[in-house]
Amino acid sequence: MTGSRERILARVRAALSDVPRGEAAEDVRVPRGYRRAHGQGPALDLLADRLEDYRALVRRVPAAGVGEAVAEALRRRGASRVAAPDDAPEEWFASCPAEVVRDAPLGEGPPLGVAELDAVDGVVTGCSVAIAETGTIVLDTGEHQGRRALTLVPDYHLCVVRAGRVVDSVPEAVARLSPALPQTWISGPSATSDIELQRVEGVHGPRTLEVLIAE
């Protein structure tokens, strides 16, 4: 195995014999004339529009009204038991009609098992960043987001996006994120276009994505 490592690296170096010895990687110029953002409209409007385009459910609510909006969404969904990260704010569930099953904090007791996650009616989380131009929500297991499995196994994902977390563009999001934590970029519900290129929402991931934009 070590043999192959050395062999491959030697082959790479031999293949690059035309690259001048003194050339550093940074000497290969990368023109970055692209935009940091495209100015396609006010961020929150754009985010809502893009999310709806992916057939996610979107509601814009005042920051103080998140608890009520969560309650209303879960009632409409008919959810009686939902999962949530251990650090999800109490006020989200202040008037919640459903039983809330919190995941164990990292390193403290066993996390919710896959079977348990498969049995709940949904999951409620926050997000790390949301990208307006592409209608993307990024989870990085940080504050109010929990482990990756939490937002994967349940069939319904309700995501609270605070206005301060919304950026215009992909470059702005990449700049805010650190890959030290695992990330999941979510743009609408699970979908496939594998059959005659016809888009069908809902395959293996949550089949319904609902987003509350808290302003």
Binding site: L106, G107, I131, P179, P182, Q183, W185
Partner: peptide, 21 residues
């Protein structure tokens, strides 16, 4: 590729994360 603004899911992982994945 798919002609979408963004594909529905992208995953990023760096080595192993204790307690996740």
């Amino acid at each position: 590729s798919t002609g979408e603004r963004m594909n529905p899911y992208s995953s990023v992982w760096t080595g192993a994360t204790p307690g996740d994945g």
